[in-house]
Amino acid sequence: MISLRNVNKNYGTFHALKDVSLEIAQGEKVVICGPSGSGKSTLIRCVNHLEPHDSGEIRLDGLEVGAARDVLKVRRTAGMVFQNFNLFPHLTVLENCILAPKLTGAVSDREARKMAEDYLARVHILDQAWKYPIQLSGGQQQRVAIARALCMKPKVMLFDEPTSALDPEMVGEVLDVMGELASEGMTMICVTHEMGFARKVADRVVFMDAGRIVEIAPPETFFAAPQSDRARAFLSQISH
């Protein structure tokens, strides 16, 4: 479903991704972790071409990521959830969800609204549909952001530290929704430091450091017996 081969990305002289290769099958859930600046966010932002990669090949559901003619197709194949939610503040919750389906013209207004209501119900926030984002808590906003992404019927969901900006008591509600999505068979890449979530949901954990993938392992192996010194050091840091 997603394949990266020898992907490189530079920001000026900073080498953000170094020869990154990764294959992700349909329905697979992959958690990416690692210290800040290790290239985790850059990696998933390259998958939907929010950041253009400099060399190597990225394919998403058969599409070549980076080919000019397929940019919009690639982005509609992958839904993305951001650390800071990035809801559109001037639109209500419902309008946030129906904007893209309406503009891309695939559905009528009524169908778009019906679909948005379905997804808002699935993330347990339909009762707030008429509110503006500023009226919602962080956890609620992030669930709306998930619903907004789902409204484009993506085949893959990319989560970029979805709970990092949340108050601790709101982390659970967002992780629950993500867990439900995972159990329905969605292909997911999730950059997160929530190791409980990784243990419960991930098929594989990818550990990155300094722009490279250092280690890939199933969560039980990764947490019990990390292979690299760097991963061991990282895990001992975050378990405090």
Binding site: L87, L99, A100, T104
Partner: peptide, 15 residues
């Protein structure tokens, strides 16, 4: 306008 707004618009596949 927050930089995330442009990214969010791109991510949902808008031109």
């Amino acid at each position: 306008v927050d930089g995330g707004q442009m990214a969010a618009g791109q991510a949902i596949g808008l031109k």
